[in-house]
Protein backbone atom coordinates (compact mmCIF):
# COMPACT_ATOMS: atom_id res chain seq x y z
CA UNK A 1 0.00 0.00 0.00
CA UNK A 2 2.62 2.52 0.97
CA UNK A 3 5.29 3.66 -1.39
CA UNK A 4 3.52 2.28 -4.42
CA UNK A 5 2.52 4.54 -7.24
CA UNK A 6 -0.70 6.45 -6.85
CA UNK A 7 -2.67 7.69 -9.82
CA UNK A 8 -4.81 10.38 -8.31
CA UNK A 9 -4.87 12.54 -5.25
CA UNK A 10 -8.21 12.97 -3.50
CA UNK A 11 -8.39 15.36 -0.60
CA UNK A 12 -11.05 15.55 2.10
CA UNK A 13 -12.13 18.95 3.36
CA UNK A 14 -14.78 20.13 5.75
CA UNK A 15 -15.62 21.27 9.22
CA UNK A 16 -14.23 19.39 12.19
CA UNK A 17 -16.53 16.53 13.28
CA UNK A 18 -18.11 16.65 9.85
CA UNK A 19 -17.36 12.97 9.32
CA UNK A 20 -14.28 13.05 7.05
CA UNK A 21 -12.22 10.58 9.01
CA UNK A 22 -15.15 8.22 9.39
CA UNK A 23 -15.77 8.33 5.66
CA UNK A 24 -12.15 7.47 4.91
CA UNK A 25 -12.16 4.69 7.50
CA UNK A 26 -15.24 3.16 5.99
CA UNK A 27 -13.91 3.30 2.46
CA UNK A 28 -10.37 2.14 3.22
CA UNK A 29 -10.96 -0.37 5.99
CA UNK A 30 -14.71 -0.91 5.85
CA UNK A 31 -15.36 -0.18 9.47
CA UNK A 32 -16.94 2.50 11.57
CA UNK A 33 -15.80 4.06 14.79
CA UNK A 34 -13.95 1.08 16.14
CA UNK A 35 -16.89 -1.28 15.63
CA UNK A 36 -14.99 -3.82 13.54
CA UNK A 37 -11.95 -5.58 14.96
CA UNK A 38 -8.89 -3.54 14.29
CA UNK A 39 -6.62 -4.48 11.51
CA UNK A 40 -2.92 -3.99 11.71
CA UNK A 41 -3.24 -0.29 10.85
CA UNK A 42 -1.55 2.09 13.19
CA UNK A 43 -3.61 4.95 11.91
CA UNK A 44 -5.32 6.45 8.97
CA UNK A 45 -4.56 9.86 7.61
CA UNK A 46 -3.40 8.79 4.21
CA UNK A 47 -4.62 5.72 2.41
CA UNK A 48 -4.16 4.23 -1.02
CA UNK A 49 -6.81 2.01 -2.53
CA UNK A 50 -7.09 0.31 -5.88
CA UNK A 51 -10.40 0.65 -7.61
CA UNK A 52 -11.65 -0.85 -10.89
CA UNK A 53 -13.69 1.44 -13.09
CA UNK A 54 -14.74 1.22 -16.75
CA UNK A 55 -12.33 -1.63 -17.28
CA UNK A 56 -9.40 0.29 -15.81
CA UNK A 57 -7.56 -0.08 -12.57
CA UNK A 58 -6.77 3.08 -10.66
CA UNK A 59 -5.00 3.64 -7.39
CA UNK A 60 -6.58 6.41 -5.37
CA UNK A 61 -4.52 8.30 -2.84
CA UNK A 62 -6.85 9.59 -0.17
CA UNK A 63 -5.75 12.51 1.97
CA UNK A 64 -7.61 13.13 5.17
CA UNK A 65 -6.99 16.53 6.73
CA UNK A 66 -7.10 17.94 10.19
CA UNK A 67 -10.36 19.82 10.33
CA UNK A 68 -9.68 22.18 13.20
CA UNK A 69 -10.02 25.80 12.19
CA UNK A 70 -6.62 26.61 13.58
CA UNK A 71 -5.13 24.77 10.61
CA UNK A 72 -7.39 26.30 8.02
CA UNK A 73 -4.78 28.79 6.89
CA UNK A 74 -2.51 25.99 5.73
CA UNK A 75 -5.16 24.05 3.86
CA UNK A 76 -3.96 25.34 0.54
CA UNK A 77 -0.78 23.33 0.98
CA UNK A 78 -2.95 20.23 1.33
CA UNK A 79 -5.14 20.44 -1.70
CA UNK A 80 -2.40 21.51 -4.09
CA UNK A 81 -2.36 19.12 -7.02
CA UNK A 82 -5.49 17.26 -5.95
CA UNK A 83 -7.61 15.90 -8.79
CA UNK A 84 -10.69 15.70 -6.62
CA UNK A 85 -11.88 17.20 -3.37
CA UNK A 86 -14.59 15.69 -1.22
CA UNK A 87 -16.09 18.56 0.70
CA UNK A 88 -17.97 17.11 3.64
CA UNK A 89 -20.83 18.55 5.60
CA UNK A 90 -22.78 17.04 8.43
CA UNK A 91 -26.44 16.83 7.35
CA UNK A 92 -27.50 17.28 10.96
CA UNK A 93 -25.54 20.53 11.33
CA UNK A 94 -26.49 23.53 9.21
CA UNK A 95 -23.35 25.38 10.20
CA UNK A 96 -21.20 22.73 8.59
CA UNK A 97 -22.79 23.49 5.24
CA UNK A 98 -21.84 27.13 5.57
CA UNK A 99 -18.22 25.98 5.71
CA UNK A 100 -18.73 24.11 2.46
CA UNK A 101 -19.08 27.41 0.62
CA UNK A 102 -15.80 28.58 2.08
CA UNK A 103 -13.97 25.49 0.79
CA UNK A 104 -15.59 25.65 -2.60
CA UNK A 105 -14.48 29.24 -3.01
CA UNK A 106 -10.96 28.35 -1.90
CA UNK A 107 -10.74 25.48 -4.37
CA UNK A 108 -12.21 27.41 -7.25
CA UNK A 109 -9.73 30.21 -6.69
CA UNK A 110 -6.63 28.14 -6.20
CA UNK A 111 -7.04 24.76 -7.80
CA UNK A 112 -9.12 24.92 -10.93
CA UNK A 113 -8.27 21.38 -12.05
CA UNK A 114 -9.68 19.91 -8.88
CA UNK A 115 -13.17 18.45 -9.26
CA UNK A 116 -15.49 19.09 -6.33
CA UNK A 117 -17.80 16.53 -4.74
CA UNK A 118 -20.19 17.67 -2.04
CA UNK A 119 -20.70 14.97 0.49
CA UNK A 120 -23.45 14.99 3.09
CA UNK A 121 -22.57 12.71 5.99
CA UNK A 122 -24.43 10.87 8.74
CA UNK A 123 -27.35 9.96 6.52
CA UNK A 124 -28.29 7.21 8.96
CA UNK A 125 -29.19 9.83 11.56
CA UNK A 126 -31.44 11.63 9.08
CA UNK A 127 -33.09 8.40 7.98
CA UNK A 128 -33.69 7.54 11.59
CA UNK A 129 -35.54 10.76 12.21
CA UNK A 130 -36.42 13.30 9.53
CA UNK A 131 -36.18 16.10 12.08
CA UNK A 132 -32.48 15.54 12.35
CA UNK A 133 -31.98 16.88 8.85
CA UNK A 134 -30.72 20.45 8.99
CA UNK A 135 -29.49 20.73 5.41
CA UNK A 136 -32.07 20.55 2.65
CA UNK A 137 -31.18 18.21 -0.19
CA UNK A 138 -32.57 20.43 -2.95
CA UNK A 139 -30.83 23.46 -1.62
CA UNK A 140 -27.58 21.55 -1.88
CA UNK A 141 -28.23 20.25 -5.39
CA UNK A 142 -29.12 23.75 -6.59
CA UNK A 143 -25.88 25.02 -5.17
CA UNK A 144 -24.01 22.09 -6.68
CA UNK A 145 -25.45 22.81 -10.14
CA UNK A 146 -24.31 26.36 -9.80
CA UNK A 147 -20.72 25.35 -9.08
CA UNK A 148 -20.87 22.28 -11.33
CA UNK A 149 -20.28 19.81 -8.55
CA UNK A 150 -21.96 16.53 -7.67
CA UNK A 151 -23.76 15.68 -4.45
CA UNK A 152 -23.66 12.45 -2.48
CA UNK A 153 -25.49 11.81 0.75
CA UNK A 154 -23.63 9.14 2.67
CA UNK A 155 -23.42 7.31 5.94
CA UNK A 156 -20.14 6.04 7.27
CA UNK A 157 -22.10 4.06 9.82
CA UNK A 158 -24.03 1.99 7.29
CA UNK A 159 -21.60 2.50 4.44
CA UNK A 160 -24.41 3.81 2.25
CA UNK A 161 -23.34 5.56 -0.94
CA UNK A 162 -19.66 5.72 0.01
CA UNK A 163 -18.40 3.31 -2.59
CA UNK A 164 -20.57 5.05 -5.17
CA UNK A 165 -18.92 8.32 -4.33
CA UNK A 166 -15.42 7.00 -4.91
CA UNK A 167 -16.47 5.07 -8.01
CA UNK A 168 -17.89 8.26 -9.45
CA UNK A 169 -14.71 10.15 -8.66
CA UNK A 170 -12.59 7.46 -10.32
CA UNK A 171 -14.90 7.32 -13.30
CA UNK A 172 -14.87 11.08 -13.80
CA UNK A 173 -11.11 11.00 -13.60
CA UNK A 174 -10.76 8.29 -16.23
CA UNK A 175 -13.30 9.92 -18.52
CA UNK A 176 -11.72 13.35 -18.29
CA UNK A 177 -10.05 14.00 -21.66
CA UNK A 178 -6.92 15.39 -20.00
CA UNK A 179 -6.34 12.33 -17.85
CA UNK A 180 -7.58 9.99 -20.54
CA UNK A 181 -4.93 11.19 -22.93
CA UNK A 182 -2.31 10.60 -20.30
CA UNK A 183 -3.49 7.09 -19.63
CA UNK A 184 -3.86 6.14 -23.25
CA UNK A 185 -0.37 7.34 -23.86
CA UNK A 186 0.76 5.02 -21.11
CA UNK A 187 -1.03 1.95 -22.41
CA UNK A 188 -0.28 2.63 -26.06
CA UNK A 189 3.36 3.02 -25.36
CA UNK A 190 3.46 -0.22 -23.53
CA UNK A 191 2.26 -2.03 -26.62
CA UNK A 192 3.98 0.00 -29.28
CA UNK A 193 7.06 1.54 -27.84
CA UNK A 194 8.53 2.25 -31.28
CA UNK A 195 5.92 4.80 -32.21
CA UNK A 196 7.78 7.96 -31.35
CA UNK A 197 11.42 8.57 -31.75
CA UNK A 198 12.78 11.53 -29.97
CA UNK A 199 15.88 12.44 -28.20
CA UNK A 200 15.97 14.58 -25.15
Amino acid sequence: MSGSRVDMKIVLLGKEFGGKTSLVERFLHDRFHGEAPYQATIGAAFGAKRIEVVGKSLILGIWDTAGSERYEAMSRIYYRGAKAAIVCYDMTDSESFARVCFWVKELRNNEENCKIYLCGTKKDLVDENKNNRKVDYHMVTDYADEIRAKVFETSAKTGENIRNLFLKIAEDYTMDPVNKQQQEKDTLNLQEPTKKKRCC
Partner: peptide, 10 residues
Protein backbone atom coordinates in the same frame (compact mmCIF):
# COMPACT_ATOMS: atom_id res chain seq x y z
CA UNK B 1 -4.52 1.38 20.97
CA UNK B 2 -7.12 3.36 19.08
CA UNK B 3 -5.65 4.11 15.63
CA UNK B 4 -4.96 7.79 15.16
CA UNK B 5 -6.35 9.98 12.41
CA UNK B 6 -5.34 13.15 10.59
CA UNK B 7 -6.78 15.24 13.40
CA UNK B 8 -4.40 13.63 15.87
CA UNK B 9 -1.47 13.47 13.54
CA UNK B 10 -0.93 17.10 12.59
Amino acid sequence: NEPASADDFL
